[in-house]
Amino acid sequence: MENAQKLAGKVALITGGTLGIGLATAKRFVAEGAYVFITGRRPAELEAAVQELGANASGIRGDVASLSDLDHLFAAIKEQKGYLDIVFANAGVADLAPLADATEAHFDKHFDINVKGTFFTVQKALPLLRDGGAVILTSSTVGSQGPANLSVYSATKAAIRSFARTWTAELKDRKIRVNAVSPGSINTPGLSAFGQTPEQTAQIFESLASQVPLGRLGDPDEIGKAVVFLASDDSSYIAGIELFVDGGVAQI
């Protein structure tokens, strides 16, 4: 009988795995039979997430923008498991800043974490990533839209979408599939942070939901299910794509 678990026996890495989309995906991966390494910058949140995930998960503290932290991460994975089957390069940040007001620090923060972090996470994973493995990158609907006050963040997500194309070409001989998942507005702590008060957050959520054809924000678990699809054999003939999970907001 076919094993019902889509990721049985797989070893996975999820960066930014302590909250929101990363944690929801980690829960899905564990439920589907994978052993999961998660990263995060804040020790308390990392420990809490590992406790929630259970015995088939480990947490390794680190900042994806730091190459020494990435070296430590992959050394630990090599020592504990010896290989990876799945890399979900998910860690990222998003802050509002109009073009006229954006600072160098704002620009550097977003490109260091979102672009540099994603690039070197995947580069440094390659020696451990087994042939036939899967790489999933977190892009965003804003990578192909033009929302005001998010020009830097949107540019980082467009770069990540580009990585899915070029890395598909570069890794084809190893049968490693690279795809991007592009969430729309998802009910996460990161989205909540755009509001300075609970009332303002509620207004932001209501405004965003009104723009979505399905009439609501997405749930992190809905992204997790899409990532499981891209990580599993269910998507064995899918490479280089951008899978929008956005309630239709960027589609019509």
Rank of each mutant, 00 (worst) to 15 (best):
A148M: 11
W167V: 11
W167N: 09
F194S: 08
L129V: 07
V181L: 07
T156F: 09
R174W: 06
S162V: 01
L126A: 11
G184E: 12
F205R: 11
V135F: 03
G195I: 07
N149H: 13
T156W: 00
N187E: 15
K175T: 03
D131R: 14
T197M: 05
L191Q: 12
S162W: 05
Q203D: 13
I160P: 04
V135L: 02
Q196Y: 06
R130A: 14
K124I: 03
P147F: 01
I186T: 07
V142S: 15
R161L: 08
P127Y: 02
K172H: 10
V152P: 14
Q196A: 15
Q200F: 10
F194V: 00
P189L: 05
A159C: 08
P198Y: 12
L137G: 00
R130N: 13
G184V: 03
V178Q: 05
V142R: 03
R165N: 14
G132C: 03
N187W: 10
A169C: 08
D131T: 11
G195E: 11
G184D: 12
N179Y: 05
Y153R: 09
S140C: 06
D131I: 01
A193K: 12
T197F: 11
F119M: 14
K175R: 11
R130T: 15
Q123C: 00
G190S: 08
E170H: 02
A164W: 11
G143W: 03
I176H: 11
F120S: 01
G132D: 10
F163V: 01
P189N: 04
S185I: 05
G132P: 07
Q145C: 04
G132W: 10
P147R: 02
A169R: 12
V122A: 01
L191T: 07
T201Y: 10
A169I: 14
L191Y: 12
P189C: 09
V122F: 12
S207M: 14
L171V: 03
I176A: 08
T201G: 06
A148H: 08
A148L: 14
T201A: 09
T168Y: 02
S151M: 15
G143V: 03
P189F: 09
I160E: 07
L191I: 08
E206K: 15
A180V: 03
I176W: 09
F163S: 02
P198Q: 13
L137Q: 00
A158D: 04
E170D: 14
Q145V: 01
F194N: 05
L129P: 14
G190V: 00
S154H: 00
T138S: 15
F205M: 05
Q123E: 14
G143M: 04
Y153P: 15
L191A: 13
R161V: 00
L128R: 02
